[in-house]
Computed example of a mutant assay.
Amino acid sequence: MKIKLMLLCFLLMMTLIGCSKGTTESKSLDEMKMREIAWNSLEEAERKTVIGDWKQAEVTLAKWDDIGVKTAKEKSKSIARVLFKTTFDPLLGSIGIYIDTDANKIIGYDLRM
């Protein structure tokens, strides 16, 4: 009986570990896709000002009201913000790009002063 209980606990633990690992990987893939969409939208001059590896850009969830300059007319339900740190951050601020995660399209930008 004790062996059956230990075996059951082991199988349950392996199932939970397997499920959580898959969730983390899919989240990373979504974040990388958002980074790629944002990076590909930048002009070469903007790319040259980005500090560090663009593949490490910060990706966060955002709301429609957070977008400074909207390029879409319809509200999106799921929005990601990709933030690139640049050499001009002290003067203009970082480059922030908002992406509709369902359509994988850019829907807005942060204001840069």
Score class of each variant (00 low, 15 high):
residue 1 M to L: 08
residue 2 K to S: 04
residue 2 K to E: 09
residue 2 K to C: 00
residue 3 I to S: 11
residue 4 K to R: 14
residue 7 L to Y: 06
residue 7 L to C: 06
residue 10 F to K: 09
residue 10 F to G: 07
residue 11 L to D: 11
residue 11 L to Y: 14
residue 11 L to G: 15
residue 12 L to D: 11
residue 12 L to Q: 12
residue 13 M to T: 14
residue 13 M to N: 11
residue 14 M to V: 13
residue 15 T to V: 14
residue 16 L to H: 05
residue 16 L to S: 08
residue 16 L to F: 12
residue 17 I to A: 13
residue 18 G to R: 11
residue 18 G to K: 12
residue 19 C to G: 10
residue 19 C to A: 15
residue 19 C to I: 14
residue 20 S to I: 09
residue 20 S to F: 12
residue 21 K to E: 10
residue 21 K to C: 08
residue 22 G to T: 07
residue 23 T to H: 11
residue 24 T to V: 15
residue 24 T to S: 09
residue 25 E to W: 02
residue 27 K to P: 00
residue 28 S to W: 04
residue 29 L to C: 00
residue 30 D to V: 07
residue 30 D to S: 07
residue 31 E to T: 04
residue 31 E to H: 13
residue 31 E to V: 02
residue 32 M to P: 00
residue 32 M to E: 14
residue 33 K to M: 13
residue 33 K to T: 12
residue 33 K to R: 15
residue 35 R to F: 03
residue 37 I to N: 08
residue 38 A to C: 07
residue 38 A to F: 03
residue 39 W to R: 03
residue 39 W to E: 09
residue 40 N to Y: 05
residue 40 N to S: 03
residue 40 N to I: 01
residue 42 L to N: 10
residue 43 E to T: 05
residue 44 E to R: 05
residue 44 E to C: 00
residue 45 A to P: 00
residue 46 E to Y: 04
residue 46 E to T: 00
residue 46 E to V: 03
residue 46 E to A: 13
residue 47 R to V: 04
residue 47 R to M: 15
residue 48 K to S: 11
residue 48 K to T: 04
residue 49 T to D: 10
residue 49 T to P: 01
residue 49 T to C: 01
residue 50 V to M: 11
residue 52 G to E: 10
residue 52 G to W: 05
residue 54 W to L: 01
residue 54 W to R: 02
residue 55 K to M: 12
residue 56 Q to N: 12
residue 56 Q to S: 13
residue 57 A to G: 01
residue 57 A to C: 02
residue 57 A to W: 03
residue 58 E to H: 05
residue 58 E to A: 08
residue 61 L to K: 09
residue 63 K to P: 01
residue 64 W to D: 11
residue 65 D to F: 14
residue 65 D to S: 15
residue 65 D to V: 15
residue 65 D to M: 15
residue 66 D to T: 09
residue 69 V to G: 00
residue 69 V to N: 07
residue 71 T to S: 15
residue 72 A to D: 08
residue 72 A to M: 10
residue 73 K to N: 09
residue 73 K to P: 00
residue 73 K to Q: 10
residue 74 E to L: 05
residue 76 S to N: 04
residue 76 S to W: 03
residue 76 S to M: 03
residue 77 K to Q: 12
residue 77 K to S: 12
residue 80 A to L: 11
residue 83 L to F: 02
residue 83 L to H: 00
residue 84 F to D: 06
residue 86 T to L: 09
residue 88 F to Q: 15
residue 91 L to T: 08
residue 92 L to W: 11
residue 95 I to S: 07
residue 95 I to H: 06
residue 96 G to R: 12
residue 96 G to F: 12
residue 97 I to D: 05
residue 98 Y to L: 07
residue 99 I to Y: 01
residue 100 D to I: 00
residue 100 D to F: 01
residue 100 D to Y: 03
residue 101 T to R: 08
residue 101 T to S: 12
residue 102 D to W: 00
residue 102 D to C: 00
residue 102 D to I: 03
residue 104 N to H: 13
residue 104 N to Q: 08
residue 104 N to D: 11
residue 105 K to N: 08
residue 105 K to L: 06
residue 106 I to L: 08
residue 106 I to P: 04
residue 106 I to R: 05
residue 107 I to K: 07
residue 107 I to A: 04
residue 107 I to S: 06
residue 107 I to H: 05
residue 107 I to G: 01
residue 108 G to H: 03
residue 108 G to I: 04
residue 108 G to S: 08
residue 110 D to V: 02
residue 111 L to P: 02
residue 112 R to S: 07
residue 113 M to I: 13
